[in-house]
Design a protein around this nucleic acid. Structure first.
Lengths: 260, 260
DNA sequence: TCTCCTATTTACTCCGACATAATATAGCGA
DNA sequence: TCGCTATATTATGTCGGAGTAAATAGGAGA
């Protein structure tokens, strides 16, 4: 007998189905959750579907039941599935999903993102961000202004074509939400930031950005510094609308099914 | 020896620390997550704190490591903690918490809710709900109107003092968000609904509601039915502002540290 | 003094068994 | 024949322990 005791055959697993340990800090159950999460978000498992039993599915994934179960707890925590004895694990209806969870959002954008959903996100941005800019103009302090200024400088140095530039863009929007000194709004930052990031990448994917986004951002910044809430709100509304236009045209001309 | 084999001593546990199985559908790891979640949200474990090791903590809670770990996966999924080998499990900074997650929100309101946080939530409502009402007025269909009407009828029958009435209130706001036909907004429904619910209960706790909320709701409803976005938005703004006033005065006159 | 290596601590993964709860089925009574 | 109750089935839930992998701390060598 081969006397394989504990998790000895991990190597075959990695070489086979899940080359899990990408980078550092990636755990096995996290990888499973990612795999199943994207599968659900992409529609491979539709709401109402019943997943295979724990033992069968864990075996199919070539992981232990423990790891599989821990992954399911993650999906359950995010409202994607629900497990009950005897009944099995079922995919919950879409309105139970925590679509604003950063990780779920990432799963949603892992495959071909739903055009309708992107539109929803921009509509949310169009509602929240102008209002946030208004509050920021009324409440910003020195530190907030500095954070926004730094982000703007970084955006000018790198372009949106680089990751550093996109990061600076996110930092700018994040700084605005931070300046509202509102925890609930700040949480949306992670969600909105993710949406901004993914859609910006989509814009880049199809064509070079034809328009210089800096002036629009500067207008928002100036209004906030001046403490003019209405002007900040208006400027931000323009910014979001333009971003929506760009993304929309980019997605229309975007040929689907690009390989990863 | 007592020859206790598997989970045989659950009874002592239930009678002791965690009287877990309240109702049906409550799992052990869910109870652990609830317990630790409320502990973190209440500040018993502050950001940066390192929790005891798996073995020690699981033993302290009188549960198996599996159950404890599954609970931790839930907390990790909601951004409350982060675990790394050797370093242990640490509570993440507040800005990493998914405060809009319905479950986290429930944990936040399980103890004495932070006044500042409640204010943040109402500010979010004041931003989102009027805009949602406007969209709803432009896009509502027959089914949406029926859902709102039914909720209004139920609100009239029961008062906000009853759970049925609060449920109807939530249904009404939920129906409006549903009528926007926007998935991203709909997700906020769960969060906002929870906030509405908790704060409504707080209002009830300190005194009888002096004002009849029905007319305000009817105004919103009529505007949406008429398809008048601006009017719907205005009416909703009034409604939220009034609710904020009520809650604020209720929390001011509210003597803290009421026993559960 | 700095760098590299080793050692330890902690979480991570696996396994196999038993307990529990919800459903499906069969039996019983009206 | 129909409806209700008791039993059997089956999948999730919980348990305990063993062994693996990773990150930090401390020590050895340059």
């Amino acid at each position: 007998m081969t006397t394989i005791k504990a998790g000895k055959h991990i190597e075959e697993i990695e070489g086979d189905a899940k080359r899990t340990p990408r980078g550092t800090g990636r755990r096995l159950h996290g990888a499973i959750a990612h795999k199943l999460g994207t599968a659900i978000l992409s529609g491979k498992y539709a709401p109402g579907d019943t997943l295979s039993g724990e033992v069968a599915f864990a075996e199919e994934l070539e992981v232990s039941r423990s790891a599989y179960r821990e992954a399911m707890q993650v999906l359950t925590a995010k409202g994607l599935v629900e497990s009950r004895p005897k009944a099995g694990t079922k995919v919950l209806p879409r309105n139970r999903w925590n679509l604003l969870d950063p990780e779920v959002l990432a799963w949603a954008f892992a495959g071909e993102p739903d055009v309708e959903f992107v539109r929803s996100l921009f509509e949310l941005r169009a509602i929240v961000e102008p209002a946030a800019a208004k509050l920021a103009a009324e409440r910003r302090d020195k530190a907030d202004i500095k954070a926004m200024k730094d982000a703007l400088v970084a955006m000018r140095r790198h372009t949106l074509a680089t990751e550093a530039g996109r990061s600076a863009d996110r930092d700018f929007h994040n700084a605005i939400l931070q300046a509202t000194h509102n925890d609930a709004l700040l949480v949306l930052s992670a969600s909105i930031g993710a949406a901004v990031n993914w859609t910006t990448q989509f814009k880049q994917r199809s064509r070079a950005l034809p328009r210089n986004p800096i002036p629009d951002h500067v207008k928002v910044f100036d209004a906030i510094v001046a403490g003019d809430g209405v002007m900040a709100s208006d400027a931000m509304r323009v910014l979001v609308d333009l971003a929506l236009d760009d993304t929309r045209s980019a997605m229309n001309t975007d040929q689907p099914s690009l390989p990863e």
